[in-house]
Design a protein around this nucleic acid. Structure first.
Length: 933
RNA sequence: GCCUUGGUGGCGGAAUUGGUAGACGCGCUGGAUUCAAAAUCCAGUUCUUUCGGGAGUGUGGGUUCGAUUCCCACCCAAGGUACCA
């Protein structure tokens, strides 16, 4: 009987679903193992062959762990809030929930078709109110918390209130806004309720703040940096300005140090850890305050080089700095204002990317050097960013290249404060070789000594202190979108109030239009029923708002990363409606053992989710500080575009081999029309798109051959390959094997469907092997050697996530067993288990043929036995000067001297030496012989 | 610029601590089978050669009996990222 993969795969997919084969139990005597994939955004385009790469790898690992006696949790769900569904809604009026539902259905069909061992009973969807109830719940917990630097963890806000009642805020060590006013216990007692709320908001882990955003007035919305090209919106080409907006923020900066420290405890790829480290951007230095001459203002700066303070010859403020308007002199006013306005039009990314042009304006004001009391001119320049540090720089041109360039450009003096450094051409930034000179009490000191000394002196005069600064900023958590989680927040007298836990979820309201309102409010401003009745605890019509018992609700929604920040924990008990998850569930599963996903999430999802986990840990809601022990990045699969060549100015197309004879244009055509030999059927092309209908084709050898180009898989290049067609033609097992066979999991690699015939015929050969199986036949020594060699290699490969080499190993194994005419059940039975994580359908079918009633998924993984691999001779490579020239079979127990004697006496050795006398003979028993000379 | 990863036949890739470079598969060539094709099977396939051999893992050096593997310098590609003070 032939290998009928269509029948087999359908049969076992049905079996697994019916028997809930992969349903994981929350209590078991077996050790637990949690394998997690990054859940997909269900886009309208469906899955392409790049998506399943990581899912196949994690599925192999999950199945392998089951064979090794683990209780495996392997869930899947959907990150189903997002922009594309909203864009589609704006265009068509179709509710995003409907689009999303349809897309999920298609994703599910495609995923099912690939035979993954997911426990679908635990599925989550971030857009499902039953799920986002808990996203809202975490938000409320964050609101009700503050960060206590003394205990170095988040605590309930009530502990902060009792500190305020006892002693005010002068002593408390808390992470909070920069501009909090000091108050005592008496003050606190006298504050109105509203004032208290305002103060507490400055300490909460999620808080309202005015944040700078890229505002596009024409689109009525905020844009991300990458949605802006050359200062105008990518969509529509409208102007974009920097604008302050009141938004929710997450005080992730409170966790900066712990997020950094935690990296040491997790097995994540080093490049990923590096990018998180850089993103957090810890730098040690000093906070220094400069007085403004003749004014009562102070300019605070952060510097990593306080040792160079005597080299300060000017200061630069970010154009947005709040002091700019206050200190600018009348003569400079026009120039400064023009510059500030020009800067507001540039995006932050723009300003940062432009390294070459130097611009800035003198404010006319002077600061005063803290030690020399000399005047220092204050400039503004767009190379200083308001959002980093204090938005002001003490410029030391002799020690910093940017300051140097700025000084040169504007003819500002460049005093040299380094002993023996030449600064005629460029700044001297070498900390290690710094000896300070020309700097009063710092003279003769090196970087470390000078830094310590200057910080001491700054503290003495009350104008500075040592400080650790982080590049990491608090994360803006508001989005002016419809298709996201609503905030469980209503406003009383402008102050945010949380809806009580028991009334969650607060569900998204219906709206007529998904665009911002005419007054520039977010889409939820279009809702007619979006007010909170505090008596009935329900959403009611807006016209009922009386600001006594009925209040307006928050109009922003949460960002994309909200729903993905704790989903890995929710899977542990995803159907629980009473709690985010039960203590028993998380007590059993603890954390993710293996997480597989793309590296593009390095500083987004993978950082924010670590932050939430640490918060949940502080609150006693999660038992682990880090939620994923091990993480692996899968590489991207690139597409191989197909190109046809049109003779310029005609409707004639010429085959690849003949294109050099003409002047041609390259056109990309659908790769699915091309066969494995890069030939395209002209008739198919005519039917594909109207422009080819009447075209003329110039063939070579009666064929039209296309050109190929490797590039990102994208609809616009027509190079997207869907798994569906491949499953139909070759089966899921072939696709699974082929995706793994392509190359190392972490590397990006091009897709070319042609090669799949190799793994497909491997499966056919495997199938054939079992057709002649005979129960009674005893395995030969060769059979056992082949089997155990394979067990050893496959086991090592899976442990090392080297799935591509296992596929080769299977091929070698089947080739050898076929050559040996192996019929023994004692060999074929364990072989089926070895193959099963990779090609589960065929493995189940063969397992059944072997006479088993139960699914192969729980069969124990075969045990490797060294004794079958013991050899007693070795084919020694005989090298001359390191180059292998011939081989010689010798017993493994032969000694060094004896080997040398045999080799030297050999006729081929003599022929190689051609009369020369060898200088040296290296013999490594069991490995190699090398003759030098 | 910086950080990270990578560079091996026509292609995807393999080579476990430095020890036979090119496993395995695709493609290609030849053959068997077939009326023919598909499918299947067999043989060959890094380059070069005077058929003895010689060269060869991005480039140039180095360490070593021996380097794809270790060290130094450089080139190229991909991804990330910053006027970060």
């Amino acid at each position: 009987m032939d290998y009928n993969f269509r029948e087999i795969e359908a049969k076992w997919q049905k079996y697994w679903a019916k028997n809930q084969t992969f349903k994981a139990s929350n209590n078991s005597d077996k050790p637990k193992y949690y394998v997690l994939d990054m859940f997909p955004y269900p886009s309208g385009a469906g899955l392409h062959v790049g998506h399943p790469l990581g899912y196949i790898a994690s599925d192999i690992y999950a199945r392998y762990k089951r064979h090794n006696g683990f209780n495996v949790l392997h869930p899947m769900g959907y990150d189903s809030f997002g922009l594309p569904a909203e864009q589609y809604a704006i265009q068509t009026g179709q509710h995003p929930a409907i689009t999303t539902e349809a897309n999920i259905k298609r994703y599910r069909e495609q995923l099912d078709q690939l035979g993954f061992s997911f426990d679908w009973s635990r599925e989550v969807r971030t857009s499902d109110p039953k799920y986002y109830k808990w996203t809202q719940w975490v938000f409320i917990q964050l609101f009700n918390s503050w960060y206590n630097k003394t205990s170095d963890k988040a605590e309930d806000i009530s502990t902060l209130v009792s500190i305020f009642e006892k002693e005010g805020n002068t002593k408390v060590q808390a992470v909070c806004d920069d501009d909090v006013q000091e108050f005592g216990a008496k003050d606190w007692a006298g504050f109105s309720d509203r004032t208290r709320q305002e103060i507490l908001l400055q300490y909460r882990l999620t808080y309202l703040a005015d944040t700078e955003v890229n505002w596009c007035p024409a689109l009525g919305t905020v844009l991300a940096n990458d949605e802006i090209v050359n200062g105008i919106s990518e969509r529509g080409g409208h102007p974009v300005i920097r604008k302050k907006m009141t938004q929710w923020s997450m005080r992730i900066t409170a966790y900066a140090q712990r997020l950094l420290d935690g990296l040491d405890s997790i097995d994540w790829p080093q490049p990923l850890k590096d990018s998180q480290t850089n993103w957090i951007g810890r730098s040690e230095g000093a906070h220094v305050e400069f007085n403004v001459q003749n004014e009562d203002y102070k300019i605070a700066v952060f510097t990593t080089r306080p040792d160079t303070i005597f080299g300060t010859s000017f200061m630069t403020l970010a154009p947005e700095h709040e002091l700019v308007a206050k200190i600018t002199t009348a003569e400079q006013k026009a120039q400064v204002e023009a510059y500030v306005e020009a800067t507001a039009k540039r995006s932050e990314r723009d300003r940062m990317a432009d390294v070459k042009s130097i611009s800035g304006v003198f404010t006319g004001a002077y600061a005063e050097h803290p030690f020399t009391k000399e005047p220092i001119p204050i400039w503004i320049g767009d190379y200083v960013l308001a959002s980093y540090g204090t938005g002001a720089v003490m410029a030391v041109p002799c020690g910093d290249q940017r300051d140097y360039d700025f000084a040169k450009h504007f003819d500002i003096p460049i005093p040299n404060i380094f002993d023996g450094a030449d600064i005629s051409e460029e700044a001297f930034a070498d900390k290690a070789n710094t000896i300070i000179g020309n700097s009063d009490f710092l003279n003769g000191l090196n970087f470390k000594e000078a830094t310590r000394k200057v910080i001491d002196e700054l503290e003495k005069i009350g104008q500075g202190e040592g400080k650790i600064n982080y590049r990491l900023r608090d994360a803006v958590f508001s989005r002016q979108r419809y298709w996201g989680e609503p905030f469980p927040v209503y406003y009383v007298d402008g102050m945010p109030q949380m809806i009580a836990d028991e009334h969650l979820p607060l569900e998204l309201p219906e709206v007529e239009k998904y665009l911002p309102t005419e007054t520039g409010e977010p889409p939820l401003g279009n809702a007619t029923h979006w007010a909170w009745n505090t008596q009935t605890n329900t959403v009611v019509a807006n016209e009922l708002i009386d600001d006594k018992t009925i209040f307006p609700l928050e109009l922003n929604t949460m960002p994309g990363w909200a729903g993905s920040s704790q989903y890995f924990n929710r899977y542990m008990d995803s159907q629980n409606n009473e709690a985010i998850y039960s203590e028993e569930a998380i007590g059993y599963w603890q954390d993710v053992d293996l997480y597989i996903g793309g590296s593009e999430h390095a500083t987004g999802h993978l950082l924010y989710s670590r932050f939430w986990q640490k918060f949940l840990f502080d609150m006693g809601i999660a038992p682990k500080k880090e939620y994923a022990k091990k993480l692996i990045n899968q590489g991207m699969i690139t597409g191989t575009s197909a190109i046809v060549y049109r003779i310029s100015g005609t409707n004639k197309y010429v085959s690849l081999g003949l294109k050099s004879e003409y002047e041609v244009e390259e056109l990309r055509v659908d790769v699915n029309l091309v066969n494995t030999s890069d030939e395209i059927r002209v008739e198919d092309l005519r039917n594909w798109q109207p422009e080819f209908k009447e075209a003329e084709f110039i063939l070579e050898d009666g064929k039209y051959v296309v050109g190929r180009e490797v590039e990102k898989m994208s609809k616009r290049w027509f190079n997207v390959v869907n798994p569906d067609n491949i499953c139909e033609e070759y089966g899921a097992d072939s696709l699974r094997l082929y995706e793994m066979f392509l190359g190392p999991l972490e590397q990006s690699k091009p897709w070319n469907t042609a090669g799949i015939t190799g793994v497909h015929s491997f499966l056919k050969k495997l199938w054939k092997l079992y057709a002649n199986m005979e129960e009674a036949v005893q395995p030969t020594a060769d059979n056992l050697k082949t089997l155990h060699k394979t067990i050893k290699k496959v086991e090592e490969d899976i442990e090392n996530f080297s799935f591509n080499t296992s596929v080769s190993t299977f091929m070698i194994c089947v080739n050898e067993l076929t050559a040996q005419k192996c019929k023994s059940k004692a060999i074929l039975e364990p072989l089926a288990i070895l193959v099963s994580p990779y090609a589960p359908h065929i493995a189940e079918e063969l397992w059944e043929k072997l006479g088993h009633q139960e699914s192969i998924s729980t069969a124990a993984f075969p045990k490797f036995d060294e004794k079958h691999l013991v050899e007693n001779s070795k084919e020694y490579p005989i090298s001359f000067n390191g180059k292998m020239r011939f081989k010689l079979e010798l017993p493994l127990d032969m000694g060094k001297d004896e080997i040398e004697a045999v080799v030297m006496a050999h006729e081929k050795t003599q022929a190689q030496l051609n009369g020369r006398e060898p200088k040296k003979v290296i013999v490594v028993p069991g490995k190699i012989v090398n003759i030098v000379g």
